[in-house]
C-alpha cells in the first residue's frame, strides 16, 4: 500500500422510481469493458424484507496508470425497497423494478503502489518531495484523470436513470392515459 490521495469524495446520486436493476448492472459491466478499469468486487449483500429487497454492492475498480501510479474508485450502490412492477413501454407491458437508488462514488490516486519507496525514511522523504514539489503538476494531472473518470461514470448513471424518468407503473395511471 503506497500513498493514497482521495480526490473525489462521496459524489452522491439519488433516484427513486422505476428502472431495471439487471440493465443497470449490465450498463455498469459494459463500462468496465469499455474503460480499462479492472473489476475489483468487494462486498455484496442482499436482504429480502416485507417492504422489498434491500441490496448493497461495493466495488473497487482500479487501473495501473504507470509503474508508479494507480487509479482506483470506490462505488457504493444501495438499492432500497426493490419491488417488481408492470409498466407499459411502446404499447407493450414490461416487468421492471421500482426502488430507491443511492450511489456514492469516491476516487483515489495511489502513488508507489508497489511500496518500493517506503522502506527507509530517506526514500519516503524523497517520494513525498517528488510528488508534492518536483512533480506537482504531473500529480495534479493524474488526479484530474481520476476525477474525469469518476464524473464520466456518474454521468453514465445519470443518463441511465433519465431514460426511465417518464415511465409510470400501470396500476397508478388513469384509465385514459394509454
Amino acid at each position: 500500500m503506497g500513498e493514497v490521495n482521495q480526490v473525489v469524495d462521496h459524489l452522491k446520486l439519488e433516484y427513486k422510481g422505476i428502472f431495471n436493476i439487471k440493465e443497470l448492472f449490465g450498463m455498469f459491466g459494459r463500462w468496465y469493458k469499455e474503460s480499462p478499469y479492472e473489476k475489483g468486487g468487494d462486498y455484496i449483500s442482499e436482504q429480502r424484507t416485507h417492504h422489498g429487497k434491500c441490496i448493497e454492492y461495493v466495488y473497487w475498480p482500479w487501473k495501473k496508470q504507470t509503474d508508479y501510479i494507480r487509479h482506483y474508485m470506490k462505488l457504493r450502490i444501495l438499492i432500497y425497497d426493490a419491488k417488481k412492477v408492470d409498466v407499459m413501454v411502446d404499447g407493450k407491458k414490461q416487468r421492471l423494478d421500482h426502488a430507491r437508488f443511492l450511489l456514492y462514488l469516491d476516487g483515489f490516486v495511489e502513488n508507489d503502489y508497489e511500496s518500493r519507496w517506503r522502506d527507509t525514511p530517506l526514500f519516503m522523504f524523497i517520494r513525498t518531495l517528488a510528488s508534492k514539489f518536483f512533480y506537482k503538476r504531473y500529480a495534479k494531472f493524474m488526479e484530474r484523470m481520476v476525477i474525469d473518470d469518476c464524473h464520466h461514470l456518474y454521468e453514465k448513471f445519470e443518463r441511465f436513470f433519465n431514460m426511465y424518468r417518464s415511465f409510470r407503473p400501470v396500476k397508478k395511471q388513469p384509465h385514459f392515459y394509454y
Partner: peptide, 18 residues
C-alpha cells in the same frame, strides 16, 4: 509514520519535521 523509523537520528527527525 509508525513503522518507518524517523526517530533513528536527528537528521531523519529533521526530515520528518520538514
Amino acid at each position: 509514520y509508525e513503522h518507518i523509523g524517523f526517530g533513528k537520528n536527528a537528521f531523519l527527525a529533521y526530515l520528518k519535521i520538514v
